[in-house]
Design a protein around this nucleic acid. Structure first.
Lengths: 116, 116
DNA sequence: TTCGACACCTTGACAGCTTAGGTATGCATC
DNA sequence: GATGCATACCTAAGCTGTCAAGGTGTCGAA
């Protein structure tokens, strides 16, 4: 009765969250909760971001100087922390996007080969 | 003088190794060392598999019943452990390939949106 | 007043990768 | 015959990132 341990639908592929967050902010600041929603909606829930992954990621990226934050108010009048891209964050977005494309293309090509 | 911590070129994206190994074996058994070589060559070194990641992955996958192994000899006459896909491994290959495609497509679409 | 959505957060456990070692064999070269 | 390199296997420590599961507080609607 082995437990089937593998990647569940919706689960993140580790390491892809950062670039998604950076992209989310490339149109201007967003608050954390909204970033999570945005990623889920923009991928039709193919990518689901747990809050336990999201908030540490935001703090991490701020610590690295990719993001900066300030408290503000949402459209609904609620208190929220807004994150924006720093210049270094923008550079990261470029670099990680490039990296993602070459990596994912390489993997996809490989997986698309007819096997047998 | 901050250390630039991010994904280096060649580094694996965590969680993508399994499906690559499964694919490598979809044409028939290979030995561990050869699997690593094959992935590197097939992706023009875009994906580099460290041995410290590869061997634990093989053991893990065998433990899960996706692979089975037996000792044999390479073309060069060397002793090596050959891994082959089990039926469950084949099912995993199908499932994880599908998962990869939907995930990577979703991420790529998102990243391809013009930002600003 | 109770519930759900919004919005933030942390902690513990765990998986998987990197780095850095290690063993052993066979072949070629000095 | 020693030395080095490629082949071929392996492990351990340390780190990072994710998940699961909890928590706080506010607001509006029922």
């Amino acid at each position: 009765m082995g437990i089937e341990l593998s990647l569940n639908d919706g689960d993140l592929i580790s390491g892809t969250l950062d670039v998604l967050v950076l992209k989310a902010l490339s149109w201007g600041p967003k608050h954390g909760y909204g970033i999570g929603r945005w990623i889920g909606e923009s991928t039709d829930a193919t990518v689901a971001v747990e809050e336990g992954a999201l908030y540490p990621a935001l703090h991490r990226m701020e610590r690295r100087g990719w993001l900066e934050s300030k408290w503000g108010k949402t459209e609904l009048g609620r208190r929220a922390k807004f994150y924006g891209l720093t210049p270094r964050g923008h550079k990261q977005l470029i670099a990680q996007t490039k990296r993602w494309h070459s990596y994912s293309q390489a993997v996809s090509l490989l997986l698309d080969r007819p096997s047998a």
